[in-house]
């Protein structure tokens, strides 16, 4: 039951994203780099919200775990960037496992509030320990943490091209991994838990464990995005841990289409470009976020790709 058309689309999108760097230059490259990283965040969120049907309001916590795990390791530990990156991912993995164990004892509304509160506690902790984290002001990574050597090659993160290709590489790995995860038996199980948990239990599955797996994978991928973001742009700050980050990733996923492989990429692209435009016009650009959240829940709960999938292309999932 493999989904060959979706696989072909995956390869085509990756090839297109690789090729586009020879066409564009300047600010669009930077914008696209950011989009790719934030899309990874949304892809992680989508594993839980879209495929497994659990709406978290606290994924900023896992993004921030990756960001601070990697950033603090590089800033204070002075470790090589790949190790800092791994440290960030590990921090997010551990935190999402622990929070998942607790939060998954609740459901629906309580689950949303519990995840929100844990994330809020995390955000407040980044402020409270500002002597270490830099709090609101954040920390800029020193020069030695802006480059690393890979296979004898020195790679400088001040180069826009290097940043774009690293972001694309990570994006590609996550995308392919999620293709394998969601389009095979495991993805079917996630959907089964989302559609009918009680039935799934009575077919011999430990629903709690499947949810915990989805939660941990989801949090870890969010951490991958956070770690990448912090190291690539050399800055870690508490604004990434704010409630707004959790809402934005929810919005990216909702716009693109929850439970579709490419929904997060589409949603992140559309919303990042829109917010970019609006924040040039007004300081109150968040009003667009608010209006969109209402409009989507009222009329397009399945998002762009979800609607296309239901109307024309059932394989787009």
């Amino acid at each position: 039951m493999r989904n060959l058309r979706l696989f072909a689309l995956t390869i085509a999108v990756l090839a297109g994203l690789f090729g586009v760097q020879f066409v564009i230059s300047g600010y669009p490259v930077l914008a696209l780099t950011r989009i790719l990283i934030l899309a990874v965040f949304a892809m992680g969120y989508n594993v839980l919200m879209g495929y497994t049907g659990l709406v978290s309001l606290g994924h900023a916590l896992f993004f921030a775990a990756g960001l601070y795990g990697a950033g603090l390791a590089a800033y204070y530990g002075g470790v090589a960037l790949p190790i800092a990156f791994a440290a960030g991912i590990a921090a997010a993995a551990v935190l999402s496992l622990v929070v998942g164990l607790l939060a998954l004892r609740t459901q629906t509304v309580s689950f949303m509030i519990v995840t929100l509160m844990f994330a809020q506690a995390g955000y407040l902790a980044t402020l409270h320990f500002s002597a270490i984290t830099g709090g609101d002001q954040g920390l800029s990574l020193p020069a030695h943490a802006r480059s690393f050597s890979l296979l004898g090659q020195e790679i400088a993160l001040t180069s826009a091209t290097a940043r774009y290709n690293i972001a694309l590489a990570v994006f590609a790995v996550v995308l392919l991994a999620l293709y394998a995860l969601t389009q095979g038996p495991r993805g079917r199980l996630f959907a089964a838990v989302r559609e009918n948990p009680e039935r799934t239990r009575m077919l011999g599955y430990d629903v709690g464990r499947i949810r915990l797996l989805a939660f941990t994978v989801s949090g870890t991928i969010s951490g991958v995005a956070g770690a990448l973001y912090g190291l690539m742009f050399g800055f870690i700050g508490s604004s990434f841990a704010e409630f707004r980050s959790s809402v934005e990733v929810l919005l990216f996923t909702l716009v693109g289409g929850p439970g579709t492989l490419f929904g997060p990429l589409v949603g992140t692209t559309v919303m990042t470009l829109l917010i970019d435009r609006l924040s040039g016009l007004t300081s109150a650009y968040l009003i667009a976020v608010g209006v969109l959240l209402i409009v989507l829940t009222l009329w397009f709960p399945k998002g762009i790709l979800g609607t296309i999938r239901d109307r024309w292309a059932p394989w787009l999932r």
């Binding site: 109150a284 009003i287 608010g290 209402i294 989507l296 829940t297 709960p301």
Partner: peptide, 25 residues
């Protein structure tokens, strides 16, 4: 949205931003 609990949370988050930003403006 028929008071769907989850959709209500998402849309009232939207409402929160709209009111907050209108007050800001």
């Amino acid at each position: 949205i028929d008071y769907d609990p989850e959709a209500t949370i998402v849309s009232t988050i939207g409402l929160m931003y709209v009111i907050q930003q209108v007050v800001l403006m």
